[in-house]
Amino acid sequence: MKKLKFIFTILVATAIFASCDWDNYDEPESFLKGTIVYNGEPINVSYNDVNFQLWEPGWELSYPIDVVIDQDGSYSALLFNGNYKLVFPDGQGPFRTIGADTLDITVNGDKNLDIEVEPYYMIRNAQFSATGGNVTATFQAEKIITDADARDIERVNLYVNKSQFVDFRTNIAKTEIGGGDIADANSISMSVAVPEITPTQNYVYARVGLKVTGREDMIFSPVQRIDL
């Protein structure tokens, strides 16, 4: 009797484990990776803020796959093989798309795809230095879009944080210059005092951001580690 019970248990267990393999769907396994770039240079944005959508046509009901862009402009999505349409929702990002607003992409195995966009401004030559507990940044704001779509600078900000996530939400120090107060966009200099950090930390991360009027998302310089 005991033996029978044992065999029965084994049988049931086998059936349960074997069936997992049998009735599950395959998981998606193709990586779509890349960076949002302008002329090959990554566009840095704030985390969790800028996203695009992938739509797979052909289904009766369509739901987008939201792909969020990381701080350094990179993105990645794990997808099933297939044809997708890539769309930036209205008003997303500190840039406009080039040409058609929809990009057709075919995913068949891992794929690297850098997406070219046209930002309103680019932050060039951002240099950071630390002197006497202050972080100083100098940079240039280059106007990229100069046609009818051109926008003015609303403000530029210098953000400092103790972790690598640096933007208007997560910072320990920040300073701001309004768009009208920028004398020369080719040489902007900002400086902010770093407050005391507990636990003590002898380095910080910093970057500068630029907001154009009428666009929600800011463009940033790459995050830089600064030793105090």
Binding site: L61, Y63, P64, P89, D90, Q92, R169, E216
Partner: peptide, 27 residues
């Protein structure tokens, strides 16, 4: 943080699948 897309609430994908004439809210 109130994003510009919060000004008018999201009309979900089911509604827009059932009625493709519904346009999305901005941002």
């Amino acid at each position: 943080r109130f994003r510009l897309g919060n000004y008018y609430s999201f009309i979900n994908d089911d509604i827009r699948n059932n009625n493709p004439q519904i346009v999305k809210n901005p941002n």
